[in-house]
Design a protein around this nucleic acid. Structure first.
Lengths: 246, 246
DNA sequence: ATCAAATAGTGGCACTGAGACACTAAGCTG
DNA sequence: CAGCTTAGTGTCTCAGTGCCACTATTTGAT
């Protein structure tokens, strides 16, 4: 073939993506937080076609100029909605099909993020989209999101629940200092089940994830030790699944 | 904005993807098999620019006409190289950046597949690419694959090793009937470590994944019971990690 | 002061599943 | 029949967890 006799340079010179049929490619983020003892997710009300007026996960197209990597795109989206820069961010899966977007074949790369709601205020962004925290349960039970965002949310939720079985991910939903009870409660909210106190404490403490800050949380009863994450934030493994008492 | 006063129909009518800067989007597959007591991966020698002449994971662009979903694209690629239709196929992650492809911003969705090498013969395909099984270890140690395919392979390998800790995935690398020793050996090859025989058998058997076929594998010593997968193939969970003896 | 309520945190036993490893079982070969 | 090889088992130990009752420390009401 003639093509193969071209040098790579000449080939690249003559290459023009606009000559090909390519899918739309975007990034969507499921941003979780804990609010009022429930796991919430950040939704935006679409201010543009398609699916105008519907609630959706925040997301959008890759900016070929500004974004260097997919993760960068995700971080940019996160920042636009929440103002948060540092946060736990993990790629979950990509969803692509001919059907999922009325504009045609499209692919979206889904991420999930964990943030401490207390630290941020939602950003009504320039396109004046509404932004809101909504309980995950409520969304899954009764909200029809734009595109296939229900399916994406479900997958992110599954992933979160799955990882919480054997990692300390939930620390990312709390402020820097927290008590073991607060942490346990966060685990319970995500797993939607109770955890036996002693087992939980043993596991967390034995895993050497946390370090005492020396401070105490005081309230209307016995004060509790405050902890912070040990090894610069990253998640850490346990040896077994967590199960609640029968 | 005027745009918001359009009906969705009019908006879609006027929408043309060629007016936007979009990334290239493709699908790549890491096809694993066990050959000569080693985990092998299928590589193709690129017959086209870019990276002409380099070894790469099989993959390619989404066919917007023929492919209905990403998974369909992956299956098509798998079929083109191996002729295999049914096989374990799992999406691993997407890799996207400005740098990874010299043609510009590109995203690839990586899958991995497990097949029984005995059942297939490699297809020297129409573009006359060379196709070969190569030991994973060898590739990771000493082969510079095209694009970021080394990183993709590593991630797929990690995912495989990870899942083998708590699922019965390796059954997908074996023929329909197999002995427990063969299965154990497959686990060991993937994990690159030995597993204690009794523990392995207890776990697999207690997990209720397998069913005896009634047949025996005979050889130059005591015959072994043959098993097949119980519940139509899907993987199944164990309760703990597998660890080799010290 | 004292006591109750509430949450923090611990002691300690039972159970389960995995590691270890020696043992038995059943075929083949010479 | 002895000896090799691989299949498959018996059983002890040990670690991590479930369970649940117990102690500890605070606030606030009486």
């Amino acid at each position: 073939m003639a093509k193969n006799q071209l040098s790579e340079r000449d080939y690249l010179q003559s290459y023009n993506i606009h000559n090909y049929d390519v899918p739309l490619t975007s990034v969507d983020i499921t941003i979780f937080t804990v609010l009022d003892n429930a796991l919430n997710v950040l939704l935006v009300k679409r201010a543009q076609h398609p699916a105008l007026g519907k609630w959706a996960l925040p997301g959008g197209f890759i900016d070929l100029k500004k974004d260097r990597t997919l993760e960068h795109t995700a971080q940019r989206k996160l920042k636009e909605k929440t103002g948060v820069r540092t946060s736990y961010l993990e790629q979950v899966a990509s969803f692509g099909s001919k059907q999922r977007d009325p504009r045609g074949w499209s692919v979206t790369v889904a991420y999930f993020a964990l943030i401490d709601a207390a630290e941020i205020q939602l950003t009504h962004d320039e396109r004046s989209e509404e932004v809101a925290w909504v309980p995950v349960k409520k969304v899954l039970n009764s909200t029809k999101l734009a595109f296939d965002h229900n399916a994406i949310l479900e997958r992110c939720y599954e992933r979160l629940q799955g990882k919480v079985q054997y990692t300390s991910l939930p620390v990312n939903l709390l402020p820097e200092e927290f008590t073991l009870s607060e942490l346990q409660s966060t685990f319970e909210i995500i797993l939607d089940s109770t955890i036996e106190k002693k087992s939980f404490r043993r596991r967390i403490l034995d895993a050497d994830i946390l370090q005492e800050t020396g401070n105490m949380r005081t309230g209307s009863n016995r004060p509790a030790k405050l902890y912070r994450v040990q090894n610069q934030g990253e998640n850490f493994m346990f040896s077994r699944n967590i199960e609640g008492p029968r």
